[in-house]
């Protein structure tokens, strides 16, 4: 049976698409699934550094499409989970170096090998996004609880609704529980209500996410962190588990006294 193809998209850049792809991919692997993460952001690849696999790249997706290597050669095996692979984007090519049909055939070939194929879409709603979403059985739309990214997420959802029948699920990233409590930012409920899309993940803002990506060890590997658990919950929901949305707690008093969170939220 072919694996499930899931695209991670957002419209707006910088909301955490690649971080989300890396964490869900690793999360699924932690749960025992075989996974291929495809970086579809041609010319601006970053999934490799997020996963800490940048030094292992030999070939990329364009090399494979142009017949310079075999499919398996374009895959980089994860150093932590042998059933997790990444297919890097080409870094020195234009965004339109790949066609919708080519992306579909790469994704379908990947799906023959594993249980889940995750495609990290480029920002925007042009060709790159259309390529990345074309093979998908489901699109996860990542947004932050602020006006600009919710608006752009709505465009993505609207386009997918108008032109395809691919179902969408919403991930709200960078929630600051303390600001929500003080009514200083949109709450997750507000965002779900405005977008009218089914929710699949709520990820709190966490300075550990940056620290984790600096080291190339996505936060999902860190059992103790709220954000890591939030990403693992998304992986579980994708696998069909019924995981309730835990209320986002304030950081511990200890953390708040340390001041790192307070600076973040102001």
């Amino acid at each position: 049976m072919a694996g499930k193809i899931i695209t991670i998209s957002s419209g707006k850049g910088g909301v955490g698409k690649t971080t989300t792809t890396a964490n869900i991919g690793l999360g699924l692997a932690m749960l025992g699934a075989r996974v291929i993460c495809i970086d579809a952001d041609i010319g601006l690849r970053n999934l490799d550094v997020m996963l800490g696999l940048e030094n292992r790249i030999v070939y990329d997706i364009i090399n494979y499409i142009e017949g310079r290597c075999r499919f398996r050669q374009a895959l980089v095996r994860d150093k932590r989970f042998p059933e997790l692979f990444m297919m890097p984007a080409a870094q020195t090519r234009a965004k339109d170096a790949i066609s919708v049909e080519q992306m579909k055939s790469v994704a379908n070939e990947a799906a023959q090998m594993v249980d889940y194929v995750l495609i990290d879409s480029p920002a925007g709603i042009e060709h790159g996004f259309r390529c990345a979403s074309a093979p998908a059985e489901m699109v996860l739309v990542v947004t932050n609880p602020e006006i600009a990214s919710v608006r752009d997420a709505d465009r993505v959802v609207g386009l997918l609704e108008a032109e395809t029948n691919i179902p969408t699920r919403l991930i709200i990233n960078r929630i600051k529980p303390e600001m929500v409590r003080r009514k200083e930012m949109l709450s997750p409920e507000d965002v779900v209500d405005l977008l009218a899309v089914d929710l699949i993940g709520l990820v709190p803002e966490d300075t550990e996410i940056l620290a984790a990506s600096n080291r190339g060890n996505p936060i999902v590997l860190n059992n103790g962190s709220m954000a890591g658990k939030a990403f693992l919950d998304i992986a579980r929901r994708l696998k069909g588990e019924d995981i309730p949305f835990a209320p986002l707690k304030r950081p511990s008093l200890f953390k708040r006294l340390l001041g790192s969170h307070r600076k973040e939220s102001l």
Partner: peptide
């Protein structure tokens, strides 16, 4: 003022209008 119109409410209101016109 905050009690009357929190930043959250202002953002939600503005967003609701923007999304309606976009859609």
């Amino acid at each position: 003022q905050r009690r009357k119109n929190s930043d959250r409410e202002i953002a939600a209101q503005r967003l609701r209008l923007v999304l309606a016109h976009d859609r």
